[in-house]
Amino acid sequence: MLDDRARMEAAKKEKVEQILAEFQLQEEDLKKVMRRMQKEMDRGLRLETHEEASVKMLPTYVRSTPEGSEVGDFLSLDLGGTNFRVMLVKVGEGEEGQWSVKTKHQMYSIPEDAMTGTAEMLFDYISECISDFLDKHQMKHKKLPLGFTFSFPVRHEDIDKGILLNWTKGFKASGAEGNNVVGLLRDAIKRRGDFEMDVVAMVNDTVATMISCYYEDHQCEVGMIVGTGCNACYMEEMQNVELVEGDEGRMCVNTEWGAFGDSGELDEFLLEYDRLVDESSANPGQQLYEKLIGGKYMGELVRLVLLRLVDENLLFHGEASEQLRTRGAFETRFVSQVESDTGDRKQIYNILSTLGLRPSTTDCDIVRRACESVSTRAAHMCSAGLAGVINRMRESRSEDVMRITVGVDGSVYKLHPSFKERFHASVRRLTPSCEITFIESEEGSGRGAALVSAVACKKACMLGQ
């Protein structure tokens, strides 16, 4: 009897593995994704193909990295998701002549009506938060230079001027797309009239992360975010950046690689679950690469896999709870928690219980395998993109072996128990001629924006502006 049951459990697990095998990517698959990513990057950089390229390769006008001589107080704003952060950054000489960066910050959550109302409502709310922060720190009387981390696709015309191309991540505030974001912020500050600010720089969160990590390690020339969304930036040779005049030196390019796949480059790798996630998203047909990796989508992918296993009578005796059938019910943090389970399955059992399920031991094991399959594919897909960037940098610099540091931020990278190990191992397999160091950014977005502002202020002083 026991043997029969054991055989049935083994057969069930084997069927589960057959279904989950769809998520496995072979090294040849990853090399294919990497080569296609490089081709799209090239198209994004070139003037004649930029418009139709899915990977936009947006110039950021960040050319210099901090040298350690900029000092002063800077205000930093960070808008990239449902939370908005205001930070005071003091850049100065530390002990023994070292450079020191001290920060104080406060988080504000953005109400739904500000995210989806008008641009005026959104930026009025942001300036209200700045006003509140300055009151708390008794700094209303000071006109501070301000660095703005704005983590949406922007076409820069200068370091302090950028046109919002399109909202992502659930934002829909009308009247912002096609307009200068810094102008919208300046107008809102003017409307309030109770404080003055000098907006000197606007950067993407990947750029802010790279600059913040450069402060720790001067070989950091790539910034990457794996959180709600997924994106990367890197220092490109100016001669390859056709959208900006000049051939000397390097400029940081914001790849906006989340949109890779929007022209069909990933079609052969998309599964039924991916198509369902895409169809029910706020932007169907867009940001397809990001939807395979980002935390906004990972939990939902797992939920759809679990429903398939229920329908195949391989999980929960073929019956799903009402909660499990509800879109968004299986949160991405559950994926991390399930994979963090120590082996007694308590954590998995508790999560499934909150979803109205009474799982068996085998159910718990199957749910864990589903989570591992989805998150491992995410790590491997992400590795193909980064390997594409790094191999490109090595080739354009004609280096036999390139040493490089990548600064990384984002909740999936930082909080998932195995993502970074799987990701690092896969990147290294795909970049055999590179020695890569990964560092995690601390308060990256805010500190990085302030350091970019410090560079901009120093330049302005040198130019006598």
Rank of each mutant, 00 (worst) to 15 (best):
V335T: 06
K39S: 10
E440Y: 03
T342Y: 07
A370S: 04
G147T: 10
M57C: 06
E128S: 06
T49D: 06
D205P: 13
H218R: 09
H137C: 10
K142D: 04
R403T: 06
V203P: 09
K291W: 01
Q138P: 06
G249Q: 01
A6Y: 12
T118H: 05
S360Q: 07
F150K: 15
R275F: 10
Y297H: 08
V101K: 10
T362I: 03
A282I: 08
V71C: 14
L355H: 01
Q18H: 15
G97D: 07
S340H: 06
Q106N: 14
G44P: 00
L2H: 12
S418V: 11
D135N: 13
I436S: 02
P145N: 09
S336A: 13
G72Q: 02
F330S: 00
E221K: 03
C382D: 01
N83P: 07
E120R: 07
E51H: 15
Y234W: 01
K296M: 13
I366S: 06
L58E: 11
G178M: 10
Q26F: 09
V253I: 10
V406S: 00
I351G: 05
E177C: 15
E395P: 02
L315W: 02
E272Q: 02
R333D: 13
D113P: 14
W257A: 00
E290P: 09
E399C: 13
E221C: 05
V86K: 05
I404F: 03
D247P: 03
L165K: 15
K140I: 09
V310I: 08
F330M: 10
G72D: 12
K140L: 13
S433V: 05
A384G: 09
R333S: 09
K169A: 06
N240I: 05
K136L: 10
K104A: 06
V452A: 10
R192N: 03
T354V: 05
M121D: 13
E93I: 10
K142M: 13
A282N: 14
Y215Q: 01
Q347L: 12
G246C: 06
I130E: 01
L301K: 08
G80R: 04
E52H: 07
G295K: 11
Y289F: 11
F419S: 00
S445K: 15
E322Y: 04
L88G: 06
Q323N: 15
G227F: 04
A53E: 01
G92I: 10
M251P: 02
M197R: 09
G464C: 07
T116E: 14
G446T: 15
S64P: 09
A329S: 06
P359E: 03
F171W: 10
E312G: 12
E256W: 05
L270A: 04
R250N: 09
E177T: 12
L451G: 11
A11R: 12
T376Q: 07
L164A: 14
Q219R: 08
F23N: 00
R191F: 04
E319K: 06
R447L: 15
P111N: 14
V408P: 00
E70R: 14
N231R: 05
V182E: 13
A10R: 09
D3N: 11
L357S: 14
D311G: 05
A378P: 01
M115G: 12
V182M: 06
D187C: 03
T361I: 05
S151F: 07
H218A: 13
A201H: 03
I225A: 06
G162C: 02
G223H: 00
G261P: 01
R429A: 14
F123R: 01
S321D: 07
E237A: 06
E112F: 10
M251A: 02
S263F: 12
G407D: 03
A449I: 11
N240Q: 05
L45P: 00
P59N: 00
V406P: 00
D124F: 01
Y125R: 04
L146W: 15
M41S: 01
T103Q: 05
V452D: 04
M115Q: 14
E256Y: 13
V199P: 11
G410T: 04
L463R: 14
S127E: 07
G80N: 09
R63F: 12
P59D: 07
E312A: 15
D135G: 11
L134M: 09
A201W: 05
E272V: 07
G448F: 10
I130A: 05
S453A: 13
S433N: 10
R192I: 12
Q18K: 14
N204Y: 02
E395Y: 14
D365V: 09
R403D: 07
E157C: 15
Y297D: 04
A188T: 07
L266Q: 03
L165T: 14
V203I: 11
D42R: 10
K296D: 13
T361F: 08
E242P: 06
D160F: 05
S281F: 03
G448C: 06
S127K: 15
D42F: 12
F195L: 11
F148H: 07
G446D: 15
H137S: 09
I390L: 09
V182H: 14
E177F: 05
D400N: 04
N350Y: 02
A6Q: 08
V200I: 11
G388S: 11
R422Y: 14
E272S: 12
N83G: 12
G80S: 14
G170I: 14
N179R: 13
D135Q: 15
Y61N: 04
F133A: 03
D135P: 00
Q323H: 07
Q337Y: 08
I163A: 12
A320S: 13
P359V: 03
H218V: 05
L165G: 14
L122V: 15
E95G: 13
I225Q: 03
K15I: 15
A173V: 08
A370I: 10
A119S: 09
E256F: 07
V55L: 10
L30Q: 15
V427A: 12
K420D: 02
I130S: 01
L134E: 04
E265D: 12
Q106E: 13
V338W: 02
G44Q: 02
R7E: 15
P66K: 03
G299N: 08
R392I: 03
K12W: 13
L146H: 00
R394M: 04
L146I: 15
G410P: 03
L301I: 15
C220P: 13
T149H: 09
Q337S: 11
M381T: 05
D73F: 02
R392E: 01
K32W: 09
W257M: 08
G178L: 12
R85K: 13
Y289Q: 07
V16R: 04
L144Y: 06
Y273H: 05
M57D: 00
Q239G: 09
R155E: 12
T405E: 07
G94S: 07
L309H: 03
V89C: 05
Q138T: 05
S426H: 11
K102G: 13
